[in-house]
Design a protein around this nucleic acid. Structure first.
Lengths: 108, 108
DNA sequence: TCCTTCTGGTTTGCAATACAAACCTGGATG
DNA sequence: CATCCAGGTTTGTATTGCAAACCAGAAGGA
């Protein structure tokens, strides 16, 4: 029905945005990670990482838990739904790429 | 030497942005296309399409030529460099996905 | 001829980002 | 006990992405 290009244009920016794609893909490989570890492997600044995490949390993709007591420490992990969303996003990109390659203009 | 996640975070937004990914991928399948045809297959609004095209033109990804004389008509195509950039972008996404899958945390 | 409508786009206005830099806050350390 | 620093959060600002208003020229009718 729609072209693959229409589907591309509707890609969800929450996960697609480069910094967040990095964060969520890292978490997919890691089960869970703390703030500084995530910062190191993504190369993001603290502020930037913090705001992206808030956005992902509001979107239900990750959970952020702060350990109280002792040295403060923040642990981040994907929610089950988030894990699905991220995996599906990558699959979708692959499918769209293939669909675009095979697509040819409809004759009028 | 960096992690795949650092590389993801540095993805070029000019081509990566969903609407522009749709436009440029469509052009990759089409050689060249006129404005209205692009609008139909991407589902974008006129204004939106127009501004994305300007941005792609400034970035050297596409050329936009307006036929003067007769019915006004705008034809868009990828520059040679743009064609390379778009194809490379998709390859890069695929490579990053694979690299992320195989990545494991370095032990300290 | 003049008006009006349609095709084919561009410009404008505004809300939402993305990033960086300034700012907090509670433990560790001399 | 003062000061340092790890570990984040908030603030400020320039850039976006989008939609709606706008514009220009060709086609068609009275």
């Amino acid at each position: 029905m729609g072209t693959p290009f229409e589907d591309m244009a509707e890609i969800d920016r929450l996960v697609h945005e480069p910094s967040r794609l990095a964060i969520t893909s890292a978490l997919l490989s890691c089960e869970s990670a703390d703030f500084l570890f995530l910062q190191r492997i993504t190369g993001l600044s603290k502020g930037n990482l913090s705001s992206h995490l808030s956005k992902l949390e509001r979107g239900g993709i990750v959970t952020v838990t702060k350990s109280t007591g002792g040295r403060p420490r923040t642990t981040i992990s994907l929610t089950p739904a988030g894990r699905g969303t991220v995996a599906e996003h990558w699959d979708r990109l692959t499918r769209l790429r293939d669909a675009a390659r095979e697509w040819t203009a409809p004759e009028e």
